[in-house]
Simulated assay, not measured.
Amino acid sequence: MAFQDPDGQAARPPRRRRRWPWIVGGIVAFFVVVGIIGAATDSGKKDDDAKPAPAGTVAAPSESAAASKPAPEVKPSAAVKPKPKAKPVAKVVLSESGSGVKSTAKFHVDGDWDLKYSYDCADFGMAGNFIVKEGGNPLGELYLNELGKGKSDVTHLHDGGTRFLEVNSTCSWKIDVIDVP
């Protein structure tokens, strides 16, 4: 049986208002307000609150961390200090001396290396030439080309690998190749 209005037409049943959009909107508004209040409280903290704890002490966990899980008990005597890593040590991988022309033995350097050198032309009686270049390649890298009565110095190089050197000098000389970690 259908409802009819006085004109004889079928009447629509009364329309119910939907409540769920209002409920969902209220919940969303609640969380937005809580988020705004929480953000305002966090930004209002002073810088003094963020200072690191002095060495040897254990910092207290924040309130939210304390609520989620208990903090483990740490005794000062049980604290373990990490061992400092040993610094890699530079090592001499080649040491040669002589006068005149000489090819060195092969040596290996991992990356950076130093070429420490000295030459002395006192026996020659005048200024002499001291040349050190990459061995085995006529167009190889020229590491040193000095002209003088003598000198001691270090050249820093950055191309590791296995190599040998060719030394050419009219003077007496000494070279050390140092693998720098």
Rank of each mutant, 00 (worst) to 15 (best):
V32S: 09
D42K: 10
K87P: 06
A53Q: 13
I27W: 02
P82S: 07
I27K: 03
R17S: 08
K133M: 01
A66N: 12
C171A: 04
G98M: 05
V89N: 02
G111N: 06
G136Q: 09
N129V: 07
L157P: 04
Y119W: 10
V109R: 00
G125W: 01
D159E: 14
V32A: 12
L144S: 00
M1D: 13
H108R: 05
G136F: 03
P54D: 09
A39M: 14
K85T: 14
F107E: 01
P21M: 10
A55N: 05
M1L: 14
N168V: 01
G150W: 01
G111D: 05
Y143H: 08
A105N: 07
P84N: 11
S64L: 13
P13H: 13
K83W: 10
K106S: 14
V33P: 07
R17E: 11
V180A: 04
P76F: 02
R163G: 02
P88H: 00
P84A: 14
A55Q: 04
E73A: 13
D153G: 14
T104W: 03
C121M: 03
A86C: 06
N137V: 00
S64I: 06
P70G: 11
R12E: 12
E96M: 03
V28N: 07
I131H: 03
P82A: 08
G35L: 05
F164T: 02
K81Q: 05
V154H: 12
K87S: 09
A50M: 12
N129A: 05
V167M: 04
R18H: 08
K174H: 14
